[in-house]
């Protein structure tokens, strides 16, 4: 396990992905997705890929989140009740 920065970012990414999938409130899910995209952008930076980091940040995080939020705005915000999410999920 070469350096702890990589582990830290990887862990953050996986946790925020799991939360993004489990949260019942779709807006929270989109925020989780954006977090994953942001951490991925940072990971790209550490993997010596600045171009990709910028594109991921600009398009992956900003615009896909914006598009998702507009879509939620025109449909429903909350998932249906009987989803049975895990105990550790608040929203």
């Amino acid at each position: 396990m070469s350096d702890w920065v990589a582990i830290f970012i990887a862990a953050l990414m996986v946790v925020s992905a799991i939360f993004a999938v489990e949260w019942r409130d779709l807006l929270a899910a989109v925020v989780g997705m954006t977090a994953v995209s942001l951490f991925a952008s940072i990971a790209f930076f550490f993997l010596q890929a600045p171009d990709v980091a910028m594109v991921e940040a600009a398009i992956g995080a900003a615009l896909s989140a914006a598009v998702f939020i507009f879509a939620i705005n025109r449909t429903e915000r909350y998932e249906s009740e009987e989803e049975g999410t895990g105990w550790w999920v608040k929203w």
Binding site: P50, D51, A53, M54, V55, A57, A58, I59, A62, L63
Partner: peptide, 12 residues
């Protein structure tokens, strides 16, 4: 670093 795509995205 960065090129047409991030530039366009920033304008958007």
């Amino acid at each position: 670093p960065g090129g047409g795509f991030p530039g366009g995205a920033t304008i958007a």
